[in-house]
Design a protein around this nucleic acid. Structure first.
Lengths: 216, 216
DNA sequence: TTGATTTTCTAATCCAAATTAGATTATGAA
DNA sequence: TTCATAATCTAATTTGGATTAGAAAATCAA
């Protein structure tokens, strides 16, 4: 479909052909608009304008508004999953379970708070989007959920985390604490990393009592 | 506007006059529909049907779709705030700070998970609704936020919670963990109270290490 | 250049709901 | 009963965007 005979040099990120390139920028623009205005409030014309085209032209790249939002979410989920997984893989193999959780929390949160990022749009959209799209999306999220489930069950097996709480609840509570940040965070006072540390400290160490390791 | 000469007996809950009574049932129906279908997906005709009337008739009670959703949210926020505050007030004055936090967490979560409740609709709607409504709503939430802020700062002053985390972050993380539950919770496996206990255990005691008080 | 193909634009058309106007029915006081 | 007002209904009308069809413009291999 795309004739690429001509495009055979440069790195993988650059070399996508024109259609694919605009497709990407449409996705980026859509993510921003959907994120800012919500699924209901986002207009195709807004998205198109951000890319410098007219609403109708979007249909050359996407079949419909719904197809577009679904593409955004697919990409966002994949990005989140891959980024977190990569950060975990990059850890030395002897790193403790609690530290691994801490790293996962930081990685996820940084994606959530990344300005104009597709990951955060995805998170916000999941409960706004038509039910049918949501079903598919939630199904896809299982794989990412599994990553976290494993993180937690491994930690428990090793005795690194307490045994008296339901791990599904814990997992969702962590997701909630992190994802909610997409909504209230305003850049300035604190960096994503600082926020991640505080949330990790609370989740892992608990609020009650004195800190295990006094920070700073 | 409402002639109540005739309605001068019975308790306060019963005696609202017809208009006010249907207004209430419209709000309840709207909460359910908005909660289930999202702001974008909810149709006035669905809401009207649930009350047993036609879409047009809603306009006798509310100026517009937006006015309706805003009324739902106002009521939901007020309900949440009042319920949590009441539960805290009901506590003996010598109850410790950590326990007070625990109670607030339980109360909030039970509202969030209450089936067909206006509180939970409000929480879900906040990020779906048009920006202008959201602004007003977030402003109103400050009062409720202040309740939590006080809970946390009092606890810290008393040395009941660790001193090395930002309390705003903590507060929002707790809200996130609790509010997110509105989305994933399915009645059946666990009760809202059990979930609340696990989240409170994590937030207050931390995941790492053994539980302070082994449960059950 | 040229023609084929890809990409975008313009200008309808479509459509699902929100909204409104006026008619109709309920209700309760006299 | 009767009247006035409250509450609802019916049946348009409006509206804001999504979607589409066909006309331009851009791109590029030859």
């Amino acid at each position: 479909m795309l004739d690429q005979r001509h495009a055979r040099r440069g790195d993988a990120t650059e070399d996508l052909g024109k259609a694919e390139a605009t497709r990407q920028s449409i996705l980026a623009a859509a993510a921003r608009v959907f994120r800012a205005d919500g699924y209901a409030g986002a207009r195709l014309s807004d998205i198109a304008a951000k890319v410098g085209m007219k609403a109708g032209s979007l249909y050359y790249h996407f079949d419909s508004r719904e197809a577009l939002v679904e593409a955004v979410m697919d990409l966002g989920l994949k990005q989140t999953h891959e980024t977190v997984a990569k950060r975990l893989r990059a850890l030395p193999p002897d790193v403790g379970h609690v530290r691994r959780l801490e790293v996962a929390i930081e990685a996820h949160l940084e994606l959530v708070l990344a300005h104009e990022d597709i990951s955060s749009a995805t998170i916000k959209l999941i409960w706004q989007v038509p039910a049918q799209i949501r079903e598919r999306q939630l199904a896809d999220q299982r794989a990412y959920g599994a990553l976290w489930r494993k993180l937690l069950t491994d930690a428990r097996k090793a005795g690194a985390i307490r045994g008296d709480v339901d791990l599904s609840v814990v997992r969702m509570a962590i997701m909630g604490a992190l994802n909610w940040a997409a909504d209230w965070y305003k850049p300035g006072r604190m960096t994503p990393r600082q926020i991640a540390r505080d949330i990790a400290a609370m989740v892992l160490g608990g609020l009650a009592g004195e800190p295990k390791n006094k920070r700073k």
